[in-house]
Design a protein around this nucleic acid. Sequence first.
DNA 1: ACAAAAGTGTTGACTGTACACCCATGT
DNA 2: ACATGGGTGTACAGTCAACACTTTTGT
Lengths: 234, 234
Amino acid sequence: MSDRSHETLRLAVDLVILTVRKRTFRVLLIARGNEPFQGRLALPGGFLRTGESIEAAAARELEEETGLKGDELPLQQIGTYGDPDRDPRGRVVSVTYLAIAPNLPTPVAGSDAADARWRPVAPLLEKPGQLAFDHDRILADAVEEARRRLEYTTLATRFCADTFTIGELRDVYELVWGMRLDPRNFNRKVTKADGFLVQTDAKRAHETGRPAALYRRGPAEKLHPAMLRNGSEE
Amino acid sequence: MSDRSHETLRLAVDLVILTVRKRTFRVLLIARGNEPFQGRLALPGGFLRTGESIEAAAARELEEETGLKGDELPLQQIGTYGDPDRDPRGRVVSVTYLAIAPNLPTPVAGSDAADARWRPVAPLLEKPGQLAFDHDRILADAVEEARRRLEYTTLATRFCADTFTIGELRDVYELVWGMRLDPRNFNRKVTKADGFLVQTDAKRAHETGRPAALYRRGPAEKLHPAMLRNGSEE
DNA sequence: ACAAAAGTGTTGACTGTACACCCATGT
DNA sequence: ACATGGGTGTACAGTCAACACTTTTGT
């Protein structure tokens, strides 16, 4: 009964990299170049190397897929998935990380042969079964975690460029949560929250309308008071 | 450069089992019987078996340590720890689970040779370095997670027996959070929260004072409205 | 002038906290 | 009677959603 692991177990790292692009909530997916699940969409990821910490593996994969270093884009561990039959090649346990990306200048500089693209999240959640392995479930868990973190942390500013308007920040909340928010009350809430935003002197004009003040990400990590989502759903 | 895992990697499961006993917030720890860290305190845990899912391994360890089946005591995955040097025996990656136990009738029926006991949490957090491996850090993360979950979920009732008084439930909050709460307002908050508690007909008398109504755990998992901890600290 | 987006003021409903007070029991 | 913990009433302060209204730009 005392069954020491004679099977080879491999540890993988998978990344759920979320962004807001073209007014749509998106996730970075690759098209798999090899079996299993050849041609299917999957989360970027890879195997742990000898002597490498799990965080380092996640940061390395992130850089390979997006060109971003881990210290530019914080990674958060969100869960570990290890059902015995989740990978037909053998026993693979996957530690998953969540990263939130701003609208990146380069579309994606994938070092992998397979092309990597930003795909809208909504249809993937509505119709599961499109992704390889158990990545449907991983994606759903990660999105739920991201939605929760918008409430209690200053994560939302990670979706934005270095400076941004409150309207752009509101777009993040509306697109990730999938609901409309009152622009006036939203404005007050985020400007009042301690350390969330730092105002700059600059302003940005649009085609029409009053120019918006530009803000920078503040020092706070936790959001006080929290932004709760009980408003009118879309 | 492409370094396939030639090293043997083993996957372990560690459990942070928390309870409230003798008016103290406690964690189940074993004294290690073997090297490394022989004689030191450690979280209960063990290695994954061939073909076993991670959840199943956690449930099995729980039953071995406490005699409780996994469906009696829900387990929540809280993180995975895999620094290359965290275990001197080699590369061991540990998936950790949090369980919340009521004041168990049997002290502990450990199947392991090493004795298992409920130790107060507070001194372990104040003076780290008492636990084997990186279990200090795991414990700290798990306790913080448990404290957060008391705010947003109905987890607190898991610390209680089948029926319990509101005073006992308040003890849980006060001991886990380490702060005093107003008994009168606490009473109203928890009885108003949807699906948190179900009143029974029975009452329980103490040595002195008015007998308290007995309640049972309600069907809700999430707590609405949340119990936020901003009250007067102890 | 008008449209459009940013931002402010105000109001009424609700929520949380503090604390006075009453209830039911053992000694 | 009195101590002790359970439980209710209430008032004040703060918060939030709703929405009227003002500001600042481009056309």
